[in-house]
Nucleic acid binder design. Sequence first.
DNA 1: TATTTAAATCGGTCATACCATTTCCGCCAC
DNA 2: GTGGCGGAAATGGTATGACCGATTTAAATA
Lengths: 256, 256
Amino acid sequence: MTDLNSDIFKTIDPEHRGTTSEEVISQLREMIHRGDLRPGDRLPPERDLAKMLGVSRPTLRAGIRSLAAVGVLQSRQGAGTFVVKSDGPPSLDSSPLRLMASLHGFTPSEMFEARQSLEMAVAGLAAERATSEHLATMSEEIAGMYASLDDPEQFLVHDMRFHQTVAAASGNRILTSLMNMVATILFDVRRKTVKRARDLKESAEMHRQIYRSIRERNPEAASSAMRAHLMLAQKAQESEEAEDGAAATTSDNGSQ
Amino acid sequence: MTDLNSDIFKTIDPEHRGTTSEEVISQLREMIHRGDLRPGDRLPPERDLAKMLGVSRPTLRAGIRSLAAVGVLQSRQGAGTFVVKSDGPPSLDSSPLRLMASLHGFTPSEMFEARQSLEMAVAGLAAERATSEHLATMSEEIAGMYASLDDPEQFLVHDMRFHQTVAAASGNRILTSLMNMVATILFDVRRKTVKRARDLKESAEMHRQIYRSIRERNPEAASSAMRAHLMLAQKAQESEEAEDGAAATTSDNGSQ
DNA sequence: TATTTAAATCGGTCATACCATTTCCGCCAC
DNA sequence: GTGGCGGAAATGGTATGACCGATTTAAATA
């Protein structure tokens, strides 16, 4: 029974004034929205900031921890607490999605499908906007793939960098972040299965087809090539896993 | 209910790789992955749980708060801490994305584009998998739109429910969650501008086109119709916002 | 039996102290 | 003068204990 209640938009009560720690979170978020805190900035020491906000240090720490959990702040013992500064594309923490996958029993194929949809979208956008630098990087990574046909681990590095470049070329950082979020969850599995991959040459060829479509500014072809590539990759991985023996590997180390 | 008094909770190893609170997070996450904690379950009281894990209560609270910040746990004063149980589709917290938008200066058009890509993807999948119930719900919502042509607020409710139904029909909960995440950020803006919307009839018609394409099991047409719908919606909203700083003619103008 | 009330439960907050790590500046040797 | 080196200061991490407020539960009363 799928219920489709319309109240999915949890209005977080801007004027909540509920718990004190929530008030702290609101204060800090407000500082970020107003621009008082910019990426890379360092927050005042907890003891001082607590006094400024008129709360105790544990309460302030609770607020800081909440924002740190979602990847906005980062605390380093002895150094201070900083607003996360991402040099490259902004990254969302994937642990929420990972836990949600456990809680609701997401299947790998469902994740693959989500990744496929996202990658197809960014591939299409990349075909419209890729700069010459992006195209050059893609070409280099493909060359790296051909040079690593006998080294699956190294091949995977170039593979990921290629997809990363395509995402960057799409010019949409939101889609890029979401894509990375999903890709991160699938990464562990990929790394395990890629060691016995046997069709690296074909994979490299498909990447080259994606690259050509992007270079020729053909969004539909790029999307389609990406779809074909990922469908094959999924198929390959599933057949690899079928050979394994169905080990319930619940390796859990994703603290990034 | 699962029995939580057994040896499920092993004490934290003295040799903790990272900080103690991170170890607590790992422990809790592991319980969820293993299925010891399932949606709706209630955690032991903090004082007890802290003793079981061999940490102090503040440290345990830090871990709980981190997981609560990403939407996995929820604490209610006086009641206890619970594993979040979502009746409908699982929902990811959108505040991380919202803060990231502030930190990196995401433009509304970038968000619109992300939403468009996600909605196109789910529309295509919905065309492949929508059940008769889904189709019936979509049809009802469209009827509700036509019945609310003179009530923009009500129209928006049916609008959102329609998109929600399409997402549910896609059968991919990850994409649905990501879509909701992005849509939530855009919601506030939409609610403000929809009050002066003037092209509701055309909007309803485009929804109907999406519905028809899904019913006819034509993924490409569904995606395409969704793209057209959202492009028009974006255009309409941008023109609305452009008028905000200028003349205040909020009359029966019917252009667009 | 139903309603009210009181006690137990439990998360939220505060204050304080101490520990672990990092940073930075002054000191000393070269 | 320069460069390494050590220690003090700064700063986040953890622990203990206490009290408050909200919630739940169950007993007591009408």
